[in-house]
Design a protein around this nucleic acid. Structure first.
Length: 566
RNA sequence: UGAGGCGUGGCCAAAUUGGUAAGGCUCCUGACUCUGGAUCAGGCAACUGUAGGUUCGAGUCCUACCGCCUCAGCCA
């Protein structure tokens, strides 16, 4: 599944853009993805990336990558690199348009001086607590700072001295002079610059005052000639402030449009919560395959194509919603079904001895690699007298509608022969089934017989003497609840962590051909699901597979239902 | 009791700026099948937050109400 023909997007942002193009408000489309380099990108960012880059692509425009690095204390080059990698992996490209808000520090500084000259900004000596006090509350208006009416000259001088490093951190700020009684708190003389004697990941020690996000963001978009600034609903209330700055500065004005961020069932997507999962070792790091981070999903084996399809299908709207994680899994199956080579692996093995098959005979059997795609060819698999099958594929007393093996019943071994169960060997102590005895029908080679008789079940298997052993990690939702925030009073979201989100199986017999499987390559383990060779822990002789997602399991559903009925 | 947003089937989400509710996921049937996979065909399910109003006709316009979200960092 690759380039599916995208019909023109019909969500509200696309409609606005179409209209802007028609009315001539803009004659082109230029967007940008503006992350702060202070963490790892996750599936929620993938939605934003897909909107920003996708819309530009759809309308024949451009999309910049700009890092909003206005806070030297939190930002690191390491994050810049990981974000670039993740965006490229997703399949998007910013060409030569890689920018940083810090590229604009000089310009921003000059603009600030302009505003001071126009009497629209002033240096305030209030400390953080005092500023909060003066700001007022949601229902009461604020009070003007006693420093609000300094002369332009004094402001100019003080601002220059702030920049020169004459004052300690937090002692002064530069504020926009707007309206302390504004109903929108963001308009109550917001801070434009704060003093921070900190080393910036790119500008080093060139600055000791740094612009706030609110002061930097709109102007950065303006400088880059952005036409449509797409962002999170959270910035809706800031829009009047961005427009205020741009208007005073008399510069190019992008149109900001806000959309709802992504939420997904059974996981969390807030930076704060993800950090806790890592710090408190609930997962094995940022790239733990259970994490919703892009590096986690990548390691798990998710494909960029599936993630893009997912982003297309969830739509874009202003209403906050929670998308069913099942949709992402669906997109994965849809993609992998067409591309993943099929292979046989037994996760919970029980040995089967085929009594009428010669002791030292072995056979090479042809098997197609993907029934969906003949061009993926065939391979040879080994068959012998002793094989492994799934414990689950045998029942001593089969329930109704059970198609698999049971005493006296005949089933097909995929690609190989029909076998009939003739005996069960149990551990005399525990009663556990340790081995099954079967006979095979030599006529059934290849999976069918001359008499054309039907069997109900087809099992996967691996030849015991030829099998190689692998570690297989089965992942499940990180959180048990659909919404990990819907918790009883006083509970913490970590209380809902799924204890079975990772089940590790050792020594699973798999086809010997898998010995050469490349890290990162994906397979379908027949009748199980899609698996990916782990890029971190897997090595020759010690294969580790991650389950990307399971196959749809109709039998599990039937079984569960009948259990409920009993 | 400030301001700004949002409310369409179980979950997402459309509806040519009033014309009589797309599509996807889920779920359920059936067909087919050497993966109880895939595929195909079909089906269940919404009086569009509530109550009024305008209109021949309203998810789309008006009024009132209800619910939910965001904002009081020198974070972004």
């Amino acid at each position: 599944m690759t380039e599916e023909k995208n019909p023109a997007s019909s969500h509200f942002i696309a409609n606005i853009i179409r209209e802007d193009l028609q009315t001539g408000r803009y004659d082109r489309v230029h967007t940008r993805f503006p992350p702060e380099p202070n963490g790892y990108l996750h599936i929620g960012h993938a939605k934003a990336i897909s909107i920003d880059f996708g819309l530009a692509r759809e309308f024949g425009g451009l999309c910049n990558l700009r890092f909003d690095d206005t806070n030297p204390i939190r930002e690191e080059t390491e994050y810049v690199e990981s974000m670039k990698q993740d965006i490229r992996w997703l399949g998007y490209d910013w060409d030569d348009r890689l920018y940083f808000a810090s590229d604009y520090f000089d310009k921003l500084y000059r603009w600030a001086v302009d505003l001071i000259r126009k009497g629209k900004a002033y240096v305030c000596d209030l400390n953080a607590d005092e500023i909060r006090e003066y700001r007022g509350t949601l229902t009461e208006s604020g009070r003007e700072s006693p420093y609000r009416n300094r002369s332009v000259d004094e402001n100019l001088e003080l601002f220059a001295r702030m920049r020169a490093g004459e004052f300690p951190d937090g002692s002064r700020t530069l504020r926009a002079k707007i309206d302390m009684s504004a109903a929108n708190i963001n308009m109550r003389d917001p801070i434009m610059y704060r003093i921070l004697h900190a080393t910036h990941h790119r500008t080093g020690d060139a600055w000791c005052i740094y612009p706030t996000y609110d002061w930097a963001h709109g102007q950065s978009d303006s400088i880059e000639g952005i036409t449509h600034s797409l962002c999170d609903l959270a910035y809706e209330i800031h829009r009047p402030l961005y427009d205020w700055f741009l208007e005073r500065l008399q510069v190019h004005r992008p149109r900001q449009i806000e959309f709802a961020r992504l939420n997904m069932t059974h996981t969390v997507l807030s930076k704060r919560k993800l950090i806790r999962l890592v710090r408190e070792s609930h997962v094995r790091g940022w790239d733990d395959p259970r994490m919703p981070t892009l590096c986690g999903l990548r390691r798990r084996g998710y494909t960029p194509e599936a993630i893009r399809t997912f982003c297309d299908r969830i739509g874009v709207a202003k209403r906050e919603s929670v998308v069913d994680a099942g949709l992402l899994e669906h997109c994965l199956r849809e993609d992998l079904n067409l591309r993943a080579p099929r292979v046989m692996a037994v996760l919970n093995p029980v040995k089967v001895v085929i009594e009428n098959y010669p002791q030292d005979k072995e056979e090479l059997i042809d098997a197609d690699n993907n029934p969906e795609d003949a061009s993926m060819g065939t391979r040879k698999i080994l068959f012998s007298r002793e094989i492994y099958i799934e414990k689950n594929d045998f029942r001593e007393t089969p329930p109704r509608k059970y198609f698999r093996l049971s005493p006296g019943r005949e089933v097909r071994l995929k690609h190989a022969y029909y076998i009939t169960c003739t005996g069960v060997i149990k551990d005399p102590e525990t009663g556990e089934i340790v081995e099954l005895r079967c006979t095979y029908d030599p006529e059934s080679k290849g999976g069918s017989t001359p008499d054309g008789r039907k069997v109900q079940g087809t099992l996967h298997w691996v030849s015991a003497p030829h099998a190689i052993k692998a570690t297989v990690r089965l992942f499940d939702h990180l959180f048990t609840r659909e919404n990990p925030f819907d918790l009883p009073e006083g509970a913490d979201f970590t209380d809902d962590l799924n204890p079975e989100s990772l089940v590790e199986l050792e020594n699973c017999p798999v086809e010997p051909g898998l010995a050469s499987a490349e890290p990162g390559s994906r397979y379908q383990f027949m009748r199980h699901g899609y698996f990916c060779v782990d890029t971190v822990d897997s090595r020759p002789g010690r294969l580790v597979f991650n389950r990307i997602t399971s196959l749809r399991d109709t039998w599990a559903k039937i079984e569960k239902k009948s259990l409920r009925l009993e």
